[in-house]
Computed example of a mutant assay.
Amino acid sequence: MTEDERLTEDEIKLYDRQIRLWGFEAQTRMRNSRILLINLTSIGVEIVKNLMLGGIGSLTICDSSIVLEQDLNVNFFINSNDVGKVKVESSFNKIKELNPRVELKYELRDYNSIELNDYSLIIATGLDLPQLIELNKKSRLLNIPLYACSTHGLYGYMFVDLITSETCKKYESNEKKEGMKLDSNTEIIKINKIIENDLNFDNCIIKCDFKPIDNLLIGDKFSHLSAKKLKKITPLLPILIALSCFKSQINKSIDEISISFNDLKLKSIDVCNSLKLPISILDDDDELIQQIANQAYCEFQPVSAILGGTISQEVINMLGKRELPINNYLILDGVNNEMPIFNL
């Protein structure tokens, strides 16, 4: 590590509480991170706030959209005088005030025109599935972790592709063994014996392999589950994946957003077939499908705060290498107060 990559004394004092919480190494990695955020949506605003205050090294926001009246309810960096202006330009100064030490930049170009290899992490908000598939292909070629997310009224999702990650986690001695599979994508590759307060522990290095987003609708994901376990799978899974298959409608006026119930239901059935989920999972859920069709791309600040906080914490965990990452698809159900995770 070069002198420029180390935390300065002033930074150590500034981030003292955070260093106590997630460690010196994690804070140093945050300080040296170069993050690209695509679209300053409501959830993007929350992520920006959390990462700026967390002390990342560099943040570039890519967004050329114009401030709409509805944005005033979900973006605390703007006010009514900014309606009709470029969103990221109107938000820039207030974002910078959160932490002047962060190198903050913005791009008005389409994200496809940006050199992605300038970044160590990409967070995409509001993109549809075809857009994410193409972005994920590029991020994988460059070995850059990708987080993708979107919110729809009281619902939302997060997709994670870290490609491969290694995490250090402590267990009671002899509880785990090298080569042990924690699940189909997670394996203990090394164990170091340690003693803390006269107690023996195994410090395990755990490797997690991730799948690209174009794998979502490929392969047999659920047919091996018992009928009892299948009943526990939320219908939100096929419905939200189905919604992401439609062209993204972010940065549109609420009155202009249109997703038909019939189209969303048919696509949800297609997703069930692709995932090998029984179509019966959608039985008696016409009301839910209609609700999500009505709420598509509607931004609700409390939901964005929860999901944005989750993503921000995941980024910190990933950089700190101290907690197992979410792998790989999380759903936020704001009606039932649940956040189930699926390995797709």
Results as ranks from 00 to 15, higher is better:
residue 53 L to I: 08
residue 276 K to L: 08
residue 95 I to P: 00
residue 290 Q to H: 02
residue 186 T to Y: 09
residue 31 R to C: 06
residue 122 I to N: 02
residue 69 E to S: 00
residue 213 I to F: 00
residue 139 S to P: 06
residue 324 L to G: 14
residue 29 R to L: 04
residue 226 S to P: 09
residue 54 G to D: 09
residue 199 L to G: 01
residue 261 F to L: 00
residue 49 K to D: 12
residue 180 M to T: 13
residue 316 I to G: 10
residue 84 G to K: 13
residue 279 I to D: 12
residue 158 M to S: 06
residue 32 N to C: 13
residue 67 V to K: 01
residue 281 I to C: 13
residue 28 T to C: 12
residue 307 L to R: 01
residue 19 I to K: 07
residue 58 S to V: 09
residue 242 A to F: 05
residue 168 C to E: 12
residue 13 K to C: 10
residue 19 I to C: 06
residue 116 L to E: 12
residue 255 D to V: 15
residue 204 C to T: 09
residue 235 P to T: 00
residue 75 N to H: 02
residue 59 L to Q: 08
residue 204 C to I: 11
residue 7 L to D: 08
residue 90 S to G: 03
residue 333 D to Q: 09
residue 81 N to R: 15
residue 281 I to F: 13
residue 133 I to N: 01
residue 198 D to A: 10
residue 202 D to G: 14
residue 46 E to C: 00
residue 44 G to D: 00
residue 97 E to T: 02
residue 92 F to V: 14
residue 56 I to H: 04
residue 217 L to R: 03
residue 12 I to Q: 03
residue 241 I to R: 05
residue 179 G to D: 06
residue 264 L to K: 01
residue 262 N to R: 06
residue 325 P to R: 15
residue 34 R to S: 11
residue 84 G to T: 12
residue 303 V to I: 15
residue 172 E to D: 15
residue 336 N to R: 05
residue 86 V to T: 12
residue 242 A to D: 03
residue 247 K to G: 09
residue 293 A to E: 00
residue 271 V to P: 00
residue 104 L to S: 02
residue 116 L to I: 12
residue 39 N to Y: 13
residue 220 D to Y: 00
residue 49 K to F: 07
residue 123 I to R: 02
residue 253 S to I: 13
residue 143 N to C: 12
residue 311 I to K: 04
residue 40 L to S: 02
residue 144 I to P: 05
residue 291 Q to T: 13
residue 88 V to N: 02
residue 110 D to V: 03
residue 276 K to G: 03
residue 198 D to S: 11
residue 126 G to S: 05
residue 317 N to I: 12
residue 206 I to H: 06
residue 7 L to V: 11
residue 200 N to I: 08
residue 29 R to F: 03
residue 176 K to T: 08
residue 159 F to C: 06
residue 14 L to K: 15
residue 106 Y to L: 15
residue 134 E to N: 14
residue 167 T to S: 08
residue 261 F to P: 06
residue 4 D to Y: 07
residue 190 K to N: 12
residue 180 M to S: 06
residue 3 E to S: 08
residue 224 H to C: 04
residue 75 N to G: 07
residue 292 I to F: 05
residue 147 Y to W: 15
residue 125 T to I: 02
residue 158 M to Q: 05
residue 311 I to R: 05
residue 23 G to W: 07
residue 342 F to P: 07
residue 29 R to N: 14
residue 307 L to G: 07
residue 74 V to F: 08
residue 319 L to A: 04
residue 310 T to E: 05
residue 336 N to H: 02
residue 283 D to M: 10
residue 197 N to I: 13
residue 339 M to C: 09
residue 229 K to L: 02
residue 237 L to H: 04
residue 10 D to F: 15
residue 52 M to L: 15
residue 138 K to E: 07
residue 142 L to Y: 07
